[in-house]
Design a binder for these strands. Structure first.
Lengths: 192, 192
DNA sequence: GTCTATAATCCGATAGAC
DNA sequence: GTCTATCGGATTATAGAC
């Protein structure tokens, strides 16, 4: 594995563990087993390396979500699968956690990477919810707002899990919302 | 206003804007118009000052939430009022945002401050939801899990709002959950 | 391509004069 | 109580040898 790849992998891990501001070029170099020269030969600076990592991560997360929504199950079931999928609550969302760092939000490119992921995610969730409404699985409601609720509950679940030091806080938060959605589906069925 | 108070106010503002790691003693001193000597005379170090600020903030937030739940409205209405209250989405939650910083989670005292707030909040939400169930405003369900969902949606709403640079992302996320809860209440009423 | 050496600045904290 | 001067170490980045 060449130095460039090693640097990307080291940065990726550190960005996940410590965030953007707290991840120094020096720390990346040490973890990658590379010197200053390597670092600044392959990347003009810390921001460029972080952007390379984040765009890779965004692509992976979007891809994973997309494959969740591109399946044979019924629309509501696909939404619930996304909501209740396994997540490493204590580690936080690789992209969402960066939305708390001022230096990330102040940078045009880094910010667009994070914001773009959420736009795509909410779009996918909204489309599945529209299908669920069309199939009468849930009553007609503001699906765009509900898509945001879903994304927010996951992101907030990470916050609660990290604060409490308990992975299950995330599971319970998403589980509570799933229960609500299922109840809405059942009530609807019961009234027909 | 004495120096100590000025230091606390400056730290409070900077902690809100930049978080814990990115807030340096020097920056606090400059904003407070105080020198190094003042800072280290009144506080043993950065952590102690941050803790003083955070405990103050925790008290205020808990107090505000408590007064929301200690009102004459019906239980579900109180929960919805909390969910849909006005918030400065772009600035983030004064406590929740710190849950993303490794140095905060690694410190016993700082962490307990953040975690304790969420424990209290979820306790209050859970109690109101229990009342709502007892009053048949909503069907019986796991109120502790739903309380976490409520807290998570607010926290995640902050994340989405900051990422997108649009305050309304938070409003829509909480609004979507409120719609769900209202639908649940209506369906219940409709079936009786 | 990769290394070491170095730059200028900032970090959190301490010392000691007043 | 408050100030200025200073510490040792970290930061992001550049220079130049190999």
């Amino acid at each position: 594995m060449d130095r460039r790849e090693k640097l990307i992998r080291a940065a990726r891990q550190l960005l996940h563990e410590r965030g953007y501001e707290a991840t120094s070029p020096r720390a990346i170099q040490e973890k990658a087993g590379a010197g200053q020269g390597s670092f600044y030969h392959h990347f003009p600076g810390k921001k460029a390396l972080a952007l390379a990592v984040l765009e890779q991560v965004r692509e992976e997360l979007t891809q994973a979500a997309n494959s969740q929504f591109d399946r044979p199950e019924r629309p509501l079931q696909r939404v619930l699968c996304f909501l209740e999928q396994e997540r490493e609550g204590l580690r936080g969302c690789r992209l969402g956690r960066l939305a708390q760092e001022a230096s990330v939000l102040e940078d045009r490119d880094l910010r667009r990477c994070v914001a773009g992921y959420f736009e795509d995610l909410e779009q996918m969730l909204g489309a599945a919810l529209d299908e669920a409404v069309a199939a009468s699985e849930i009553p007609p409601l503001d699906t765009a707002a509900l898509a945001r609720t879903l994304a927010a509950t996951v992101q907030g679940g990470y916050v609660l899990a990290r604060a409490g030091g308990d992975e299950r806080e995330l599971t319970r938060a998403t589980g509570g919302l799933a229960t609500l959605l299922r109840a809405l589906g059942r009530d609807r069925g019961a009234r027909r």
